[in-house]
Design a protein around this nucleic acid. Structure first.
Length: 273
DNA sequence: GTCCAGGCATGCA
DNA sequence: TGCATGCATGGA
């Protein structure tokens, strides 16, 4: 991975295995929208970003300060990780072999713990389109105004004063009571997300499972997308169908990177099952 | 109108 | 421990 500043843009070359359509619109993050020119706009880490690939395959971070790129976006897009090597390894599994060829370029986005946990509590028994709708309302109502109609994901502190009725008004349905308690507990420090991130996987999962409204599926999504546990393997209604292809358990080549394998299988399931 | 979605808490055996 | 049930909402 190599990058340089061109005007106000950061242009990254040598990034293999990154398909923006597949990565930004595959149900791991809910705040990216494709623009008419094919680029993607969204917000993460309190930063607005417009991103696209240029004709040379370079990844263009438009109007992006160097410190935002090095301090946040490079890690968010997991640019330091060798996905080509990872995909080669996963392709020793026969189902993933064809799946990775078909959907090459899905990456894991390293989202902030709070946003990921909160988003996946909202995601339960819900569809991706409506998850995006609810989160968009949440950010517009309580996030920081970044201009041009973009808002940051509201902090736990910003949400800690809301009532259950306030969350219901966003369309969160029966999840409102989970969000109300979660916001207060994270804001007060009763739930320490940074500490959870520092624990071994099994202990981190146990901590998350102790949170009201967080079960196995939501915990594993949060672990994978918000706590950098690449061995977390979320199983939702789609993945349950995929699991019939692995009656003897997951193959050895998934070891340690189960979450990346899962993203390809999830995408395959949604398009083929 | 019915069914479903990146499920969970609760009650009951 | 495992299983049935209720739950809010909006799109198909």
């Amino acid at each position: 991975m190599d990058w340089k500043k061109i005007g106000n843009d950061i242009v990254v070359s040598g990034v293999d295995c990154l398909n923006l359509d597949l990565t930004l619109d595959c149900g791991q993050a809910f705040r990216w929208e494709k623009q008419e020119d094919g680029s993607y706009s969204g917000v993460a880490g309190g930063y607005f970003l417009n991103i696209y690939k240029n004709g040379d395959g370079g990844l263009v971070f438009k109007n992006t300060p160097e410190e935002a790129f090095t301090g946040f976006w490079a890690h968010y897009f997991d640019l330091e990780r060798n996905y080509a090597e990872i995909c080669d390894r996963l392709k020793s599994d026969s189902l993933l072999s064809s799946t990775i060829d078909a959907y090459y370029g899905i990456r894991i986005l390293n989202q902030e713990s709070w946003e990921a946990l909160c988003s996946f509590v909202i995601s339960q028994q819900n569809n991706i389109k409506r998850i995006k709708l609810i989160i968009s309302r949440l950010c517009r109502a309580y996030g920081e105004d970044l201009g041009n109609g973009y808002y940051s994901f509201p902090s736990a502190e910003a949400l800690s004063g809301l009532t259950v009725a306030d969350f219901e008004a966003l369309g969160t349905g029966y999840r409102a009571k989970y969000l109300e308690r979660l916001s207060k507990d994270v804001a007060s420090g009763k739930i320490d997300l940074a500490k959870i991130k520092s624990l071994p996987l099994e202990e981190a999962r146990k901590e998350l499972l102790g949170i009201y409204g967080v079960g196995v599926k939501v915990a594993n999504c949060a672990l994978l997308f918000g706590f950098e546990f690449y061995a977390a393997f979320p199983v939702d209604v789609w993945m349950k169908r995929v699991m019939e292809y692995y009656p003897d358990g997951l193959p050895e080549c998934f070891e340690g990177i189960e979450g990346i394998a899962q993203q390809y299988l999830f995408h395959w399931a949604r398009n083929n099952l």
